[in-house]
């Protein structure tokens, strides 16, 4: 079952960057790639409870702002110590300049 929610406007996220999106006690990260595609993952690093939104995006990699854990935000795959647990990803669609994510 899907549960699509409106996360933000397309223009809320700069290219090759991300923002934090909180919803009903959960926190997500919404990404806009340098190719202008949108992605969503859990908002906290799997290594420690740190908001990824303060981290740096380079190409398709989000780097944890604290401990240099890196993830490919398209697949959630961890790309090096200290992070070794995959980041959960969520389906995304863009409709009328709004970014929707399926948090089910």
């Amino acid at each position: 079952m899907s549960e699509w929610i409106d996360a933000c406007a397309v223009d809320d996220v700069e290219e090759e960057d991300l923002i934090r999106f909180d919803h009903e006690g959960r926190t997500f990260a919404i990404y806009r790639s340098h190719e202008n595609a949108f992605y969503a993952t859990d908002g906290l690093c799997t290594h420690e409870h740190v908001h990824l939104a303060d981290g740096l995006v380079m190409d398709h990699i989000i780097e944890c702002p604290k401990h240099n854990g890196r993830f490919d935000y398209r697949s959630g795959e961890a790309r090096g110590a200290p992070a070794c647990v995959k980041l959960k990803t969520y389906p995304v669609q863009v409709k009328s300049d709004r970014v929707l994510i399926d948090i089910a």
């Binding site: 740190v50 908001h51 303060d54 981290g55 740096l56 780097e63 702002p65 604290k66």
Partner: peptide
């Protein structure tokens, strides 16, 4: 505050 400088320091 918090991780406000993280992005810039990483760059």
């Amino acid at each position: 505050p918090g991780n406000a400088v993280a992005k810039q320091i990483s760059i």
